[in-house]
Simulated scan of single mutants.
Amino acid sequence: MTVLRTERLVLRDWTDAPTDLARLYDIYSRTEITRWLAASGLPLTDPAQAAERVRIWRDRHADHGGRYGTWAIEVRESGVVAGTLILKPLPGADGETPTENIEIGWHLHPDSWGHGYATEAARAVLAREFAAGAPEVYAVISPGNEPSMAVCRRLGMTHLGRRTEWYGGEELETFAVAAPS
Rank of each mutant, 00 (worst) to 15 (best):
G92W: 00
R23G: 03
G133Y: 08
T70L: 15
A150N: 12
D13C: 09
R23T: 01
T164N: 10
W71M: 00
V177W: 10
L42N: 07
L87D: 00
N101P: 13
A131H: 06
R53P: 04
S142C: 13
W113M: 03
A132Q: 12
V137T: 12
L172S: 00
M1H: 14
S29D: 04
V10Y: 04
A39K: 12
D16C: 12
T158E: 14
G83Q: 01
L37F: 01
A150P: 02
P143A: 03
L126H: 00
D63Y: 05
H107I: 13
T45G: 09
E120C: 06
S112Q: 04
L172M: 01
V3I: 15
G116E: 05
L85I: 08
V177N: 09
H115V: 13
E32N: 15
S29Q: 12
L37N: 03
P43V: 02
R154M: 03
W71H: 00
E165P: 11
W113K: 02
P98E: 05
D16Q: 13
A179E: 04
Q49P: 08
T45F: 05
T99K: 03
P180F: 11
G66A: 04
L87R: 15
R35P: 06
H61R: 02
S29V: 01
A134Q: 14
I104N: 02
P147R: 12
E171Y: 13
I141G: 00
D13M: 06
L21Q: 07
H61T: 07
T34H: 05
T119E: 10
V151Q: 04
H61D: 07
